[in-house]
Amino acid sequence: MTLAVAIALTIITAATPLLIAAIGELVVERAGVLNLGVEGMMIMGAATGVGVAIVTESSLLGVLAAIAAGMALSALFALMVLGLAANQYASGLALTIFGLGLSGVVGAPFVGIQREGIRRIELPLLSEIPVIGPILFRQDPFVYASIALVAGVAWFLWRTRAGLILRACGENPVSAHALGYRVLRIRLYAVLFGGACAGLAGAYLSLVLTPFWTAGMTAGRGWIALAIVVFASWLPLRAMLGAYLFGGLIILQLHAQTAGVNIPSQFLAALPYLITIVALTLIMAARRSAGRGSVAPASLGQPFAPAR
């Protein structure tokens, strides 16, 4: 039983950064913008987060700096795709390349400096309940934040007027504009929110999961977060399900490696990527056989310039 609890805990830890990044990107895509730069914003969050935390000796400042870094990069992206109506695919790729490079430069002085990770919050008494106690009431603050984010985004998108307007900008920006909504401004807020989430997810990697900096430590997690959004059909609760599924698979692979399963470790390490492909294929095949068309926001990835 304790092993099962331990595994559940590690799955949550592996899933949380994916979930935080995915939920941010989900809002961005709901507003009609495709930001392929999640990986770049995430790794900048990781580098800035751990750097600031080491310099100021404060994890909280590290987290805030990571969020700011993610937002700064997303503001650059917004300038490109909203301000200049540049190609969203290419701009996102540029953001990823730029972020990977800049994180290496920013993180260089902090290579190999180990620090104590952010601790878990233990709710007294409640965390003593067997099984569910440790899972529900003995987590680090990020896990609670990620759950709150999912709930908040789900409520915002489907229960508020602002959320409806945001989705309208993703479905039909021309109509939203004709109704007098500031499409570009709304998209800007969405992109900044996505950047903040990606930065926060990066901070989780470098401040909790592995509390030190290594170059390229995101290892494709930003891209898996993008895949989760597709897998989740742009629905927040399904994104949570998707993130936990992926987290579970990553942990399964780690356990198989340590248990000495007779498969080369590289094959196990490749599993999350292969499973991403399989999952995307299955979900598209299922949608096709269900006879449903695309569930993506109708204007996803298309630039909108009111004056053109």
Partner: peptide, 19 residues
């Protein structure tokens, strides 16, 4: 200089082209 500096320039170059 860190090797990643090249990536920074490359990313910047792509941004500038698009802009």
């Amino acid at each position: 200089l860190p090797r990643d500096m090249t990536l920074v320039f490359q990313g910047m170059l792509l941004f500038y082209i698009l802009a």
